[in-house]
């Protein structure tokens, strides 16, 4: 029984069957990659996991509880954090403030009227934020406006913000899309380090096979909205069905 269990999920947009009978089981503390050609339904599946979309049929269980029908912030409070394709951070706030918000959310829940105390006097929150920034190698940037950082730093900050919530499951949507080689390798190292050092499950949607085979210890291949195979990386590499899905006709 995995930490995330997707059973018989269907999603249809008008005439398009985006997801057809998807079954997926993500084991605790694994790095599970979901790959597939464009239009395979990877993003639709991800959106069903975080509450942005609701599947037509099927069930999505996280840690024994259904996530269906819950709002994104409720699902996040259950322990699922999401990293977006383009880094989503609070651009108008400072880097430290960016890091403080998820820590507040973890301590105080979805809403708390906390309007009198000076936020810098919340020592434990400020310390936890600074600690996390140090861990992300961003300690020198805490006063910067988040929007003024480089793309790679924004990505680091976003991953740090997700980790600050101590999630059970970290979802990444093409985390290296549009990155230079050096930044991509940095991100791979960072994610490796996270999965080695933390008690965390990582599910990653990725196009870049270099990233997938560097990180994943389990891979699901989606094609036309249906899982084609689910296997270990070594077996996926040589699988003729996967080659066909990616290259069209077998060469």
């Amino acid at each position: 029984m995995g930490i995330l269990e997707v059973k018989g999920v269907n999603k249809r947009f008008g005439g398009l069957q985006a997801l057809g009978d998807v079954n997926l089981s993500v084991k605790e503390n694994s790095v599970h990659a979901i790959i597939g050609p464009n239009g395979a339904g990877k993003s639709t599946l991800l959106n069903c996991l975080v509450g942005k979309l609701i599947p037509d049929t099927g069930s999505v269980m996280f840690n024994g509880q259904s996530v269906l029908g819950r709002k994104p912030y409720e699902i996040n409070q259950m322990g699922i954090s999401r990293v977006f394709q383009t880094p989503e951070i609070f651009g108008d706030l400072t880097v430290r403030e960016n890091m403080m918000i998820p820590i507040f959310a973890k301590r105080d829940g979805a809403f708390r009227m906390h309007a009198i105390k000076d936020m810098m006097r919340e020592r434990e929150i400020v310390d936890a934020a600074d600690h996390m920034l140090e861990e992300m190698n961003m300690a020198d940037k805490y006063g910067m406006h988040a929007a003024s950082m480089s793309r790679g730093d924004k990505r680091r900050l976003e991953i740090g913000m997700c980790l600050a919530q101590e999630p059970r499951l970290l979802l990444l949507d093409e985390p290296t899309a549009g990155m230079a080689r050096a930044d991509t390798n940095n991100t791979i190292d960072l994610l490796k380090q996270i999965s080695d050092q933390r008690d965390i499950t990582i599910a990653i949607i990725e196009h870049d096979m270099h990233v997938v085979f560097s990180l994943a210890n389990r891979i699901t291949v989606l094609a036309q909205g249906t899982p084609l195979v689910e296997d270990d990386p070594e077996n996926i590499k040589g699988n003729p069905k996967v080659r066909e899905a990616y290259l069209g006709e077998t060469a």
Partner: peptide
């Protein structure tokens, strides 16, 4: 200057991220 004020600024900055950070 309060945490509440910071949350209000984060609403203006990126409501999307706020939703996926467990805040309503």
């Amino acid at each position: 200057r309060s945490p509440f004020g910071m949350m209000l600024r984060s609403v203006k900055s990126n409501q999307h991220r706020l939703n996926y950070t467990g805040l309503n």
